[in-house]
Design a protein around this nucleic acid. Structure first.
Length: 877
RNA sequence: GGGCAGUUAGCUCAGCGGUAGAGCGCUUCGUUUACACCGAAGUGGCCGGCGGUUCGAUCCCGUCACUGCCCACCA
């Protein structure tokens, strides 16, 4: 006997262990089968599972379990990412708490600390994925800084270098002055802030009293100005072009030049040019061969290029001082309050990034991007939903060189060595480099690669590349990638480029972009806001199945989703429902019958439920094939709740309560069969509870886990339509009776569902249409006590009711009249509506025949109903 | 400045040419041997505004308004 309620905690641990011991998740179990593969988006190895991961992993697990049940040879490749900046930040923070810092301890020591932290916290997220029920092939777990993956990274770097696609360049980068590293364009978060536009008067050389006024939001950068630019066609300034301005506070002379870049409409029409600290100015500087002055140190303080009073100041401090000094000098023309976008670091959003001149490694992605664009255009890779392809294209088509070096220590160190002359040796190993260098003393490049560089290789590096492994051959390209839209650029695009470049084939056939998870108020979850919903808490409280089902239900095609305890509670309730239904089946002796043929059932109810089950199977299969997770979950929910529990189970109760007989045996077998189909259909969504019920509720051999069993096949049975039609009448009838009873406050008495077991279908159909008869029945059952109507005899009651009672007599309830009048009005409205439609010549001429017929039939029905209602009202009067 | 989403029941969202749907909430009733993490019956919508296409529009097209997100080098 099943326990009264389902206890997720115990069951989940036990079953999880069972699955892992069984080796059921291992890829390559079915060498003859079609392969299906997914690589997991590797989470930060030291991170914790957040609700976004939970959604992402759930969707993958649904697909993977679905395909595994369908007999495919499934690889779900798990693993974790070293997450360069994020991890290094955490460890540095920890060191700071112990009054230490990485510079002080040196690279080697620091890396030891990071590895130690990885060892300490590294298992956590994987453990959490297990708790969610993720059925990845854990024996193949990889880490981006594994030996194998690191070798792949090195090889890719060296090859791209040799192909001339990786190069070193000195140009402006986005610089993080706190971490003191370059970051890529993508890692910049522009935040709208209130600020000021300062108008500063630059005196013109040898023209006392003449000024050229520039406007800037970053006055401190004026110390690095090397020109003032005006538009060539701007009449206000033509006279000044070719002259020099005297840069305030420094006295340096800078040329006034003409350049299209200057927009006469903006600011004052004259713009200060700071090639060392502004991306546009850098370009202007190149065009005009302007000198380039770097006024910043790596930590963002002003360096010795600036006048002594400003040296060592942080930029925002220097700004205030400069403004004050300019004002004192009478050179501050005016100040406007504006809002403007200020670049910040994307991780903490607290550090202002500075354009900064450094030498970095770049990857010329243009040629790779061209192929990656073509691949999506050709349909080699498809985005679901496909509007994300547009996002992908727009970024790819405007792609710029990727700055791949980072001045961090945690990551893949760049495989480049320098001799004492600074000559570059790029090689896979230090020995190779030394050999190239002819034995010269070498020092290795200090920098590491952008985290996303190794992530970009994930689909093939995890499969063993550069070795030609059997897995690589079998599972690349992967079938599906499931990810969130915010890493399309960071990750998806780069995997496309690297995959095509190194494998000659796209890394995945389909990219499923799921929505982002917000809290219940619709706010983006963030630690600082404290509104992070911890999936583990939800699992503890409601169970993994409840969370998974809730997430799947909410996984719409293109929007954010809001998740919180209230919603997961609904998922939990559904799990409980499933449990209790199985309990009902068990209590009534519904045991799976080996060799049971659902197409052979004779009873109407059974034919009907087989048909409904077949429909659910077909629908859910199709929906999962097209990645419509929410629709699939919704269909399953509706089938289990509304069809199986609310109707089939209720309707079969009388059959189970009657004595023995073929109908009873058949219904038992059918119920067990339907229950088994439900368990299978729900298994991808709710693996734990279904696995548990599978083991507990059937007597067919259950040494085999549900996870390995087959996905249900669609069944066709003879007479399905007739059975369905009759059941619809019956259901309507019962609903009508219930409704009338509720209205009349009739206590429950007779077992209405018993109606079904009888033979006279035509009579039942008539009953179901006839509201008056329903009223009669309701009155009868109200008048008589439950005892007066023996169980199993409602059929008799109904037919008696029809035969014995003239319609008018029963409608003697005062409230009934208003009710009838209301219905009549409604019916008349309907008639009018259909008449309007049917008298519309164009409609009659052009509408398809079946639509017309339907409309006419409905018109007739409404009219008949109105007539009956009118008569009933007349009798009441 | 460009682009992409969205606007449907009190709330969160499905639906996307043929008389408006779910979950939660709310109201009323109900403990009959699966289930109170329950059941039954209800309440509740000019499907953002305005035009157009169509016999027919929540659905297609145009436009406006508002909301959110992404991208962009603006002084």
């Amino acid at each position: 006997m099943l326990d009264k309620t389902f206890n997720p905690r115990d069951v989940e641990t036990r079953i999880s262990a069972q699955w892992r011991a069984s080796g059921a998740f291992a890829a390559g179990r079915r060498p003859e089968a079609e392969p299906f593969s997914i690589v997991i988006p590797p989470p930060n190895v030291t991170g914790r599972l957040h609700i976004g991961h939970a959604l992402n992993n759930t969707l993958q697990d649904i697909l993977v379990r679905f395909e595994r049940m369908r007999g495919k040879d499934v690889l779900w490749q798990p693993g974790t990412d070293h997450a360069g900046i994020a991890t290094q930040l955490i460890v540095e923070r920890q060191l700071a708490e112990r009054q230490m810092n990485r510079i002080g301890m040196g690279r080697e020591k620091f890396l030891e600390e990071v590895w130690k932290w990885k060892a300490e916290s590294g298992g956590a997220i994987v453990e959490q994925q297990h708790r969610l029920g993720a059925s990845a092939d854990w024996s193949r777990e990889r880490f981006t800084m594994d030996e194998g993956l690191s070798r792949a990274v090195t090889k890719v770097f060296v090859e791209l270098y040799r192909q001339g696609l990786i190069y070193k360049d000195k140009r402006l980068v986005n610089w993080d002055p706190r971490l003191q590293t370059a970051v890529s364009d993508l890692e910049v978060e522009n935040i709208e802030l209130k600020g000021h536009l300062w108008h500063i008067k630059y005196p013109v050389e040898d023209q006392p009293g003449v000024f050229i006024t520039v406007a800037t939001t970053r006055p401190e950068t004026m110390l690095g100005d090397t020109a003032v630019a005006v538009h060539p066609g701007d009449a206000r300034y033509t006279a000044l072009v070719g002259h020099h301005a005297v840069l305030p506070l420094t006295g340096r002379l800078i040329p006034i030049i003409a350049d299209d870049y200057s927009d006469p409409e903006k600011g004052t029409g004259a713009v200060k040019i700071t090639p060392g600290h502004d991306f546009n100015d850098f370009e202007v500087g190149r065009r005009h061969h302007l000198p380039l002055i770097n006024i910043l140190n790596k930590d963002g303080t002003l360096n010795d290029e600036v006048p002594a009073p400003y040296r060592g100041l942080k930029t925002h401090v220097a700004r205030l001082k400069i403004i004050a000094d300019l004002e004192n000098a009478g050179l501050l023309d005016k100040v406007e309050a504006i809002t403007h976008a200020v670049p910040h670091d994307e991780k903490t959003k607290t550090v202002v990034l500075e354009p900064f001149l450094t030498e970095q490694w770049y990857l010329n992605v243009q040629p790779l991007a061209d192929k990656a664009i073509a691949a999506v255009e050709k349909g080699d890779t498809k985005f679901v939903p496909d509007n994300w392809a547009g996002v992908y294209f727009s970024w790819m088509r405007n792609i710029r060189p990727w700055c791949i070096s980072r001045q961090l220590w945690w990551g893949h160190q760049i495989p480049v060595w320098y001799d004492t002359d600074g000559k570059i040796y790029c090689a896979e190993t230090e020995n190779d480099a030394r050999a190239q260098a002819g034995g010269k003393a070498l020092t290795r490049d200090e920098d590491v690669l952008d985290t996303w560089f190794s992530s970009a290789l994930w689909p093939f590096s995890t499969l063993g590349w550069p070795e030609k492994t059997p897995e690589l051959k079998r599972f690349y390209p992967t079938s599906v990638l499931v990810t969130s839209f915010d890493i399309i650029f960071f990750w998806v695009a780069r995997m496309m480029m690297m995959g095509i470049h190194f494998m000659g084939e796209v890394p995945f056939r389909t990219v499923i972009i799921h929505n982002r998870v917000l809290d219940e108020q619709g706010a983006k979850m963030s630690k600082t806001k404290g509104n992070v919903v911890d999936p583990l808490t939800l699992i503890d409280e409601f169970g993994a199945d409840a969370l998974r089902f809730t997430l799947a239900q909410a996984a719409g095609q293109s929007r954010d989703m809001r998740i919180g305890p209230a919603r997961v509670e609904g998922g939990r309730n559904f799990a409980t429902k499933l449990w209790n239904t199985s309990r009902f089946c068990e209590m009534n002796g519904c045991v799976s019958v080996p060799g049971f043929d659902p197409a052979s059932v004779a009873e109407t109810v059974n034919k009907w439920i087989v048909t409904e089950t077949a429909n659910a199977i077909g629908d859910i299969t199709g929906l999962l094939e097209s990645f419509r997770f929410n629709d699939a979950a919704g269909t399953a929910y509706h089938f289990v709740y509304d069809i199986f529990c609310d109707w089939y189970v209720e309707i079969t109760k009388p059959i189970f309560q009657s004595g023995a007989g073929p109908a009873k045996a058949e219904t038992r077998a059918t119920t067990a069969w339907a229950r088994d189909q439900i368990l299978k259909l729900l298994h991808p969504f709710m693996p734990f509870i279904t696995e548990e019920l599978w083991a507990l509720t059937s007597e067919t051999p259950r040494d085999q886990l549900l996870i390995l069993s087959e996905w249900p096949e669609r069944i066709r049975i003879a007479g399905a339509d007739a059975a369905t039609a009759e059941m619809h009448w019956v259901i309507e009838l019962i609903k009508g009776v219930r409704s009338v009873r509720a209205e009349m406050n009739v206590p429950a008495a007779a077992k209405i569902p018993l109606v079904l077991t009888g033979a006279n279908r035509a009579a039942k159909a008539r009953l179901a249409r006839n509201r008056d008869v329903i009223l009669t029945l309701a009155r009868l059952t109200a008048a008589d006590s439950a005892d007066a109507i023996p169980k199993g005899s409602a059929q008799f009651v109904l037919e008696e009711a029809v035969a014995a009672l003239p319609l008018g007599e029963v409608i003697d309830f005062g409230r009934e009249r208003t009710r009838l009048e209301k219905d009549l009005r409604k019916a008349q409205d309907e008639i009018a509506r259909f008449d309007a439609k049917l008298s519309n010549e164009q409609f009659v001429a052009k509408a398809p025949e079946d639509v017309l017929a339907e409309q006419r039939e409905k018109r007739a029905e409404a009219s008949a109903l109105a007539l009956r209602l009118a008569e009933a009202i007349k009798r009441l009067a």
